[in-house]
Write a protein that binds this DNA or RNA. Structure first.
Lengths: 220, 220
DNA sequence: GGCTTGATGTAAAAGCCCTTCACATGAATC
DNA sequence: GATTCATGTGAAGGGCTTTTACATCAAGCC
């Protein structure tokens, strides 16, 4: 039974007790507000109420903290995609739509995480690293693509891996350009969800997974 | 007739004469090497052989220099896309393929420019600004989309604007994920050009602009 | 030519940030 | 109760950004 489990407020304790998590949260908040360039270790420490040197007990340097923001972000990202996909229930197609919406929702609700996760320029020298949660996230996409493919006769199925890359690229493109405060966020006449959904619709028609490959979709 | 027009090497002149351009070039080089975060005004000045204060005669601050890198980048980007599209000659389809390749080529050859142009987090507070060259670049895409649409009977044509957004998102997604040193640059089994081309192929089949909407493309 | 003027570069300094090092604190263990 | 180890502090070095007063030079004007 530790102290915070009852209402007991620790008065100015020397040791913070939860600094690592608090720093990560502060980092996300600061990045969201000032951009990844504006984020400063010192200010994160200030928000957490500790000295500028304290973060170095938990992260090798500023970049390591950013990398951890990315890693934790991928963790939540994968969990969220998994939840949305829900093993293809009730149908692969509706589950897949949920997946797309979950992707955009994450990018919009955690712009700081998404930015640090995918903007390569921010964490140079991270090229070789492989983040397990990121692999898991992609695997979910791949499982979804495979499930959709199974609706086609075996001879007509596209390579699942390539199909996943396509869908990932579309989702990522829409997320960065239209869902976050991107270049064209205001310029587009539609919500990013509608853009993604219509693009995927057309793409799946092109594969023959959805009917109507030769007509304009009426609903756009 | 100024001095540099003959082979005359200005020895240690007090005034640089071409500082603005040299600083922009240095910035691109540094960003390419160390990422946008690693770029420092002071070091760009060092590369140009001037004092750390000199850049402030040409740019309001560090961010303004980055904004100019982006603006000039869009300028070259638009020029390059325009050249590749070549007014739809010889055929809209082949011209469109050239357009896609030009898009990826730019992202790969000028990664620093592309990053600063599209990574929103790097220049916060730039949301409202409208960059003419960026509009021109998008217009080219839109013209290309319109030309492709014209191959369809009028009643089956999709909304051109939406179609352009789709194509932009796909291109941008592929460029950032697979063409630059992105997350999955090594993971993908194919070159980014092949990924983009196959995705667009399927997408156009979905619209009925290309035949084969209900079969697996054999060539992938 | 000599003077003025404006553009462009310098030097110095203030302020912030990152990072390290020696030291302080306190919770847990023996 | 003493020790130990993780965690936080304070101070300091070095780099970056930005400002300010001053230096240099090209161009125009008499």
């Amino acid at each position: 039974m530790n102290r915070s489990e009852r209402g007991w407020r620790r008065p100015q304790s020397y040791h913070h007790g939860n600094l690592k998590e608090v720093l990560l949260e502060a980092a996300r908040k600061l990045i969201e507000q000032y951009g990844p360039t504006g984020f400063s270790l010192t200010e994160a420490a200030r928000l957490a109420g500790v000295s500028p040197a304290a973060p170095y007990r938990h992260f090798r340097d500023r970049e390591a903290l950013l990398a951890e923001v990315a890693r934790a972000g991928f963790e939540r990202f994968a969990a969220r995609l998994d939840m949305a996909w829900n093993n293809g229930v009730p149908t692969p197609l509706t589950a897949f739509e949920n997946l797309g919406r979950a992707y955009l929702a994450f990018a919009r609700e955690e712009p700081a995480s998404y930015t640090v996760m995918f903007e390569t320029g921010l964490r140079p020298g991270t090229e070789g690293e492989t983040i397990p949660a990121a692999e898991r996230a992609f695997d979910i996409l791949q499982k979804a693509a495979a499930a959709l493919c199974r609706q086609l006769p075996e001879s007509e199925r596209p390579p699942v891996k390539l199909m996943s890359l396509h869908l990932w690229a579309i989702s990522h493109g829409v997320a960065t350009l239209f869902a976050q405060g991107g270049l064209a966020a205001g310029k587009a006449p539609l919500k990013s969800e509608e853009i993604l959904e219509s693009a995927v619709l057309i793409y799946l028609q092109g594969l023959g997974i959805l009917p109507g490959g030769n007509e304009t979709p009426k609903s756009i």
